[in-house]
């Protein structure tokens, strides 16, 4: 893991990154028990933590009490080719284990409340799985999104290839270089069919300077971690742009 550890400069981006890195070893150690490789990687100082993170079940947004009205809401867009298991990832995240039926037509199907680093927030997931062919609609979705989870399948080199231009597309549409993006290699339960090596994913993430994870929607490995991380990334990008703005005014 050392070769991918961020330098001092990166650690400075997030003051607590070092602490997170410590916690991370503990949690991944436990998870690594049933995996052939640890699935969490440190990169650019952005660490994944399962610590301080809890699931609060499916939100019933309209019925929430006063306490939630100030809760921050993020629109997260899930992107990637067909067949990479995007929908499974989203379903795994938005659903609780107690419900047996999933009806995507109900209004709060794609909403979920999570707590990241002690701060509750609501994620509205925009996952257009099944409609990848409607390429002309992609612009609209990207425009509406605040954070982007870009997914490929580790069992298909093609899907990895497909997303290589995705960051450029997002940046072009958003008109800004600083877009919160997270790169995700799904289906890591099928490691015997692996076509995309972990270091290939890491290399792309480095090129994009964004965090990276591998997960398995099927076995619910790293799913919640993935969505927590995009929240952190969104927070981070937001803070940085705020800082730079305030810097400007000071000057």
């Amino acid at each position: 893991m050392s070769e991918i550890d961020g330098g001092e400069h990166d650690l400075a981006r997030k003051p607590l990154a070092g602490l997170f890195a410590l916690c991370e070893v503990v949690t991944t150690g436990a998870e690594a028990g049933f995996m052939d490789k640890p699935l969490i990687f440190l990169f650019s100082g952005n660490a994944f933590v399962t610590f301080g993170f809890s699931l609060m079940g499916r939100s019933k947004a309209p019925k929430l009490g006063v306490a939630y009205t100030n809760m921050r809401e993020f629109k997260v867009v899930v992107l990637g080719s067909g067949g990479v298991g995007k929908s499974a990832l989203t379903v795994q995240f938005v659903s609780s284990t107690f419900i047996e039926k999933y009806d995507p037509t109900i209004e709060d199907f794609y909403r979920k409340e999570i707590e990241v680093d002690g701060q509750p927030c609501v994620l509205e997931i925009l996952d257009t799985a099944g409609t990848e062919q409607f390429s002309s609609m992609r612009d609209l979705y990207i425009k509406n999104g605040q954070g982007f989870v870009v997914v490929y399948s580790i069992t298909s080199q093609q899907t990895f290839h497909d997303i290589k231009t995705m960051r450029d597309q997002i940046v072009r549409v958003k008109g800004s270089e600083s877009v919160p993006i997270l790169l995700v290699g799904n289906k890591c339960d099928l490691s015997h069919q692996r076509q995309v090596r972990t270091d290939e994913g890491l290399a792309l993430a480095e090129y994009w300077s964004c965090p990276f994870t591998e997960c398995s929607a099927k076995n619910n490995q790293n799913v919640n971690v993935t969505f927590a991380e995009i929240v952190r990334e969104m927070n981070y990008v937001q803070n940085r742009s705020r800082q730079s703005k305030s810097c400007c005014t000071l000057m």
């Binding site: 929908s87 989203t90 999933y102 009806d103 037509t105 996952d127 799985a129 099944g130 409609t131």
Partner: peptide, 20 residues
């Protein structure tokens, strides 16, 4: 049709094929 496809995709992903 996109919305129909999306709904079907999620019904498929979210509901098990067999009874538990």
């Amino acid at each position: 049709v996109g919305v129909v496809l999306q709904d079907l995709t999620f019904v498929h992903a979210g509901n098990p094929d067999k009874l538990q």
